[in-house]
Computed example of a mutant assay.
Amino acid sequence: MSQQDDDWEREFDHRWAESAEHKEPSARARMLAARWKENPPDPAPFRADPDPVPRRASWASTAVVVGCVVAVMALIALVQFSSSS
């Protein structure tokens, strides 16, 4: 094995890197830890909606669906009536 192959293998030895006893946190983790030490974040539920949308006009969507179903049924009846004549 040549010196270049040995360096390449050593440089990308993931098993050796994963077996390290101490892993340094990422830059973002260090930044957030420093920021939260001085000003901790407010508690929030897991994946909370930022601004819950008020429920309104649910009858409108129901009316649209029912109207589409009635229109399709009328179209089918019209096609069957015109083909039976």
Results as ranks from 00 to 15, higher is better:
53 V>D: 05
20 A>R: 13
49 D>T: 08
73 M>F: 12
66 V>M: 14
36 W>G: 00
2 S>H: 04
69 V>Y: 02
76 I>G: 09
28 R>L: 14
19 S>V: 03
83 S>H: 13
71 A>G: 01
72 V>F: 03
63 A>I: 06
4 Q>H: 15
40 P>H: 01
55 R>T: 10
43 P>E: 12
43 P>A: 08
66 V>Y: 07
85 S>A: 09
21 E>T: 09
9 E>Y: 09
45 P>E: 11
54 P>A: 00
25 P>M: 00
83 S>P: 03
30 R>W: 05
24 E>V: 02
40 P>Y: 02
31 M>I: 06
47 R>T: 05
10 R>I: 08
35 R>I: 02
70 V>F: 03
79 V>T: 14
35 R>K: 15
76 I>P: 00
43 P>M: 04
50 P>D: 12
17 A>T: 06
58 S>H: 08
28 R>V: 08
72 V>W: 03
45 P>G: 08
51 D>N: 06
70 V>H: 00
43 P>D: 09
16 W>G: 14
59 W>L: 08
34 A>H: 02
56 R>P: 01
63 A>W: 04
62 T>D: 01
3 Q>V: 03
36 W>A: 03
79 V>H: 12
72 V>S: 07
18 E>Q: 12
55 R>K: 13
63 A>Y: 00
32 L>P: 00
83 S>I: 09
60 A>I: 11
57 A>I: 03
71 A>T: 06
24 E>M: 02
32 L>H: 00
48 A>K: 09
49 D>L: 15
34 A>K: 02
58 S>G: 13
44 A>T: 10
59 W>N: 12
66 V>D: 05
